[in-house]
């Protein structure tokens, strides 16, 4: 069976298959909710499919009309889904994971910088190691390796290990070749932390003054599940004013990062979604690093594990508090 047949087969058991389909131009893919077999023919799942579909799952599962829900996921997206399962935000028995071996995702900002003419392109496709863009009567050949999102370059897990399939979850694997694994780690954060504290403070001051408070970072985040009850729009308690001040915008980012402590899987959706190109993911990366150092824990690796901030130990191995 080829991949299209596998997906059609899955769709016979599910009311919907969350996938990616054609977007507004040949370079972009949009989420596609495939309900009929012929929808599956439109699925796009190469480097152009950049968005994580995990954020759609919690609200979709609340719908009574849906039967089982199948979702196309890269290994990093599976981590987000596992994290949702850990917190019982989605039901494992109604979920079908369709996992693709990952070749990485494009960083659209990089593509646009390398080829500004791509704003109005005629064609875009992947040819071997290159992304080919036809625009303005010219052809651009961009090396795929240099156009991938930074998260993909360091991704240690382009092929999902069997151990990471959530317990009790139906999982279907698609055929294909995954890219070679990266070394993982927190290189971008470590480079940022080499700046002096004053430089870091100035950095956030500058970056946050560009923030337009659109909350795309929140809306793209698979772990932001409060929806209409988000603290950012609550009047009581009134944590954030409606002003466009740098303080409010930075505080929102800190709130987002703290709400993700021990929950963030580092999928990079917040940074990708930011229309102003602010690297908000750095804050979450710092949070992930702290949680890993303190509790030896990474979110979304084990659907039965308890997130570390929802529990405690009477004697903490890695915390040396004052006054003991």
């Amino acid at each position: 069976m080829n991949n299209t047949e596998i997906m059609k087969n899955v769709l016979e058991r599910a009311s919907v298959l969350l996938a990616w389909g054609p977007g507004h131009d040949a370079l972009h893919a949009s989420p596609l909710f495939a309900r009929k077999a012929h929808d599956v023919d439109k699925v796009v799942m190469d480097v152009r499919a950049v968005q994580s579909l995990a954020a759609y799952l919690p609200p979709l599962f609340q719908s009574e009309k849906e039967g089982r829900i199948a979702v196309l996921a890269r290994p990093c997206h599976v981590r987000s889904i596992t994290a949702l399962l850990q917190e019982e935000l989605i039901p494992v028995e109604r979920l079908i994971l369709v996992v693709l071996p990952c070749q990485g995702k494009l960083d659209m900002a990089k593509v646009m910088a390398a080829c500004p003419a791509a704003e109005s392109l005629d064609a875009a496709f992947v040819d071997g190691d290159n992304l080919v863009i036809n625009a303005d009567g010219r052809q651009w050949l961009l090396r795929l390796e240099t156009m991938l999102s930074p998260a993909c370059v360091r991704c240690p897990m382009p092929e999902l290990p069997d151990a990471m399939i959530p317990e009790g979850c139906e999982c279907v694997r698609l055929d294909g070749q995954a890219r070679r694994p990266g070394e993982g780690g927190y290189a971008a954060l470590d480079a940022f932390m080499e700046k002096t504290p004053q430089e870091r403070w100035e950095f956030w001051k500058q970056e946050m003054s560009r923030c337009i408070r659109c909350y795309a970072c929140r809306n793209a985040c698979p772990m932001c599940v409060c929806r209409d009850h988000c603290v950012a729009s609550a009047r009581d308690p009134h944590w954030l004013s409606e002003l466009d001040s740098v303080t409010d915008k930075l505080l929102f980012q800190v709130i987002h990062a703290t709400h993700l402590a021990g929950r963030c899987t580092g999928c990079g959706e917040c940074t990708r979604a930011c229309p102003m190109g602010i690297p908000v993911g750095l804050l979450k990366m710092q949070m992930n690093k702290i949680v890993e150092e303190l509790f030896g824990y990474k979110a979304g690796m084990d659907s039965k594990a308890t997130p570390p901030l929802l529990t405690f130990e009477a004697i903490e191995k890695n915390i040396r508090e004052k006054g003991k």
Binding site: P197, W201, F203, W204, L283, I290, L294
Partner: peptide, 10 residues
């Protein structure tokens, strides 16, 4: 966690 988080903000 929050104590170790502060340095990233400067």
């Amino acid at each position: 966690v929050i104590k170790r988080f502060l340095p990233v903000l400067g």
